[in-house]
Design a protein around this nucleic acid. Structure first.
Lengths: 224, 224
DNA sequence: TCAAAAGTGTTAGATTTACACCCATGA
DNA sequence: TCATGGGTGTAAATCTAACACTTTTGA
């Protein structure tokens, strides 16, 4: 009997909190659970960690299973391990959140997995501790957003300043002053104005901006 | 075959990063690993999660095994799950950090478990991914310290303002202005001045202060 | 021509930072 | 008496927050 074998093994899963920004609201992907226990309940999308993959790899695999996308921005939320959090068996789950541009997520894949975008401020009651996972993910994501330029993962490559501001307002749940917001943006050289104009949301049109990763790495000063 | 049983089970452990503040430095408890693989290497203190205990309970149990103390301030750092992080078997580990007042930790227990206080700024190379765990714990703890009154867990119940300032300087790794620091403290009514005087570190003596939990809960405004 | 979103500067107030000397005491 | 750590206030600089009008254009 080895040192290890006197201890119990458990199942370990990953659960994905996928944030998207649409219609001026922060959303999260949820679906109806396909298996027992809890079949039919609203739930996050998850999967088990295999014997030969890291937990980060398991999360990335699960994310790409659901979205068809790779190399998503993804961060660990933490481990959830109440004894009876899963009504079937003892399963410890590690939550991850990911940020995607909703436009990159096709309707086809969405329907295939039967998931929906739900407003984070108006969520139904979810399976097990999934509401708690989302709460914690949101808290972490919010903090990160002020300190690192990660919000861009929720937007198209080209975006207007109004879109960017709306994103920050949706995540913080409070309005921002337009002039003060734009003043700050102007100080960050890695948020580049292009000559392109977006006319989808106004007659006049708004300049499109782009986040320049390279130039951010040269002078990573971000604060919003 | 149930839905669960087609997946692999793994061992799950907890590792404890125990911070203490002594001799003006932030320290962490490390010991020589007692078992194979890695016997003799510097390591955090850890333990396995049992089938019938939550991960938080496992961490609390492990902490109390090592220190003899209960109800320590403790927070999860996150899950560490590279496939080969443990050279023996697949083990996913969940790191927790705890804050203790070094005076509460007797020499007896310390010697019994053969652990030592190591300066966080001068750590040896540790077993597996334990250095990374400490790095992440320190980052989280640092953030927390600015926003919640948790530093008091690293001090005796009664402390001088110089001690408190030294603690913040040690954690941040930078000096603070004495007058500005004390000005801020004065604004926080839950940091109460007592009539007691500590003469251990100066001839004149310094007033002892106390953190009042109750009054903090009434008006929880903390920022340092 | 008008409704709707884009764009643009200034100022008062609040916060932060820098800074130097006297005090009390034990050795 | 002197060396050591304890204790205190002010002013300049910076940052933050509040605020309103003009522009463009398609319908």
């Amino acid at each position: 009997m080895t040192y290890y074998s006197q201890h119990a093994k458990v199942w370990v899963s990953v659960d994905c909190i996928i944030f998207g920004f649409d219609e001026g609201k922060l959303k999260v992907l949820i679906g109806r659970r396909q298996m027992d226990p809890g079949r039919g309940e609203w739930s996050l999308y998850g999967g088990f960690v295999a014997a030969d993959e890291s937990i980060d790899d398991a999360a990335a695999r699960t994310l790409s299973e659901l979205t068809g996308l790779r190399n998503l921005y993804m961060r660990q939320v933490g481990a959830f391990g109440s004894v009876d959090r899963d009504p079937g068996e003892r399963v410890i789950s590690i939550a991850y959140y990911a940020l995607i541009n909703v436009k990159d997520y096709g309707e086809r894949q969405r329907l295939e997995h039967g998931v929906e975008w739900a407003d984070v401020n108006n969520l139904p009651s979810l399976y097990s501790d999934h509401n708690e996972m989302i709460r914690k993910a949101l808290k972490l994501m919010r903090q990160k957003l002020h300190v690192e330029p990660v919000g861009f993962h929720l937007l198209p490559n080209l975006f207007t300043l109004t879109q960017l501001q709306n994103l920050y307002e949706a995540v913080n749940g409070e309005e921002l002053d337009k002039r003060n917001f734009r003043k700050r943006i102007k100080e960050m050289d890695f948020i580049e104005k292009t000559e392109l104009i977006d006319k989808t949301s106004s007659k006049r049109g708004a300049f499109l901006y782009r986040f320049n990763h390279r130039s951010y790495n040269e002078d990573p000063n971000f604060k919003l």
